[in-house]
Simulated assay, not measured.
Amino acid sequence: MGTLVDGTRRFAVDLHALRSGLGIGEFAPSGQVASGLPDLLRAREHGYRRIDAHTLLHLLNFEVMQPYSLDLSRPDLVCIQAIVAGSYTRWIGARMDLVPPQVLQISNVAASTSDTQAGRRLRGLLIVCEREHLLSHYRLDLASVPQAYRPIFLSREGSPEVLQLPLSATGIGLVDQMLACKYPEPLRGIFLGVKTVEFICDMVAQLHRPQRPAAPRALSGHAKRRAVEAAAEIYRREIADPPSIEQLALRVGLNRNELTAGFRQAHGLTPHAYAHMHRMERARELLGEGTLSISEVARRVGYEGYSSFARAYHGHFGHPPAQRGPAEAQPGE
Rank of each mutant, 00 (worst) to 15 (best):
E132Y: 05
S114K: 09
R156D: 12
L163F: 03
A111M: 08
E161D: 14
L60P: 00
Q117W: 13
R131E: 03
A53P: 03
A111E: 13
D141M: 10
G93E: 06
L98Q: 08
S168L: 08
V64K: 02
L56E: 01
P101M: 13
L126W: 09
S69R: 10
A111H: 09
S87I: 08
S136M: 11
F62Q: 03
I92V: 14
L104P: 00
R139C: 11
E157R: 11
T89H: 14
G93K: 10
V84E: 04
Y68V: 04
A85I: 03
A110E: 09
L77V: 04
T113N: 11
P100D: 15
S73R: 09
I127N: 00
L167G: 01
A111R: 07
L122K: 01
Q102D: 10
G119L: 08
A143I: 09
G86K: 02
H133G: 01
F62C: 06
E161T: 11
A143M: 10
L56P: 00
A53I: 05
Y88L: 07
Q66L: 14
L140H: 04
E132F: 04
L98W: 12
L125V: 08
S69G: 06
Q66F: 13
E63I: 11
R121S: 15
L56A: 04
A110C: 09
L98Y: 08
A85Q: 01
P151L: 10
R120H: 15
V109W: 00
Q102R: 14
E161Q: 09
I152K: 02
I106K: 01
D76G: 03
I106V: 11
M65T: 13
V162Y: 01
L77W: 00
E157Q: 11
R150D: 06
L72D: 01
R120M: 12
R120I: 14
L98I: 15
A94G: 05
L126K: 04
T116S: 12
R120G: 06
D71L: 08
L142P: 05
G158Q: 05
R139S: 09
A143C: 13
Y149P: 00
V99D: 04
I106H: 03
V84Y: 01
